[in-house]
Amino acid sequence: MKRICLVCQNVDCKSRGSEEIMKELQQRVADQGLTDLEVKPYLCFGACQEGPNVVLYPEKSWYAGVKKEDLDDIMKHIAGGPHVTRLDTIDTSLKELIYQLLETGVF
């Protein structure tokens, strides 16, 4: 299965720049020739106040409040580097809910 990087594109995340975040991630993934990973929009993760939200799957890494300056670290993680702990701020119960949905195929 191809790895996916989901970037929320609902109203709040978008108002905080998630569209640019998604485009930038798509560009960088293409530039680095990472063919095993696809950057895709997502409906909503339900953490609107903490967006923009980016979720890596199947790794199950959820990055909240992502800014352009965080993308270097996220790209390093995608390429096999360390988890970006400072952006991992989301409540466990919400993570569980969303990960379960992703596991059942709701993308």
């Binding site: 609902n10 109203v11 709040d12 409906l43 909503c44 339900g46 709701v106």
Partner: peptide
């Protein structure tokens, strides 16, 4: 309301 958007759309 973010929660309503998320729930109804989801």
């Amino acid at each position: 309301c973010p929660a309503c958007r998320m729930e109804t759309n989801m």
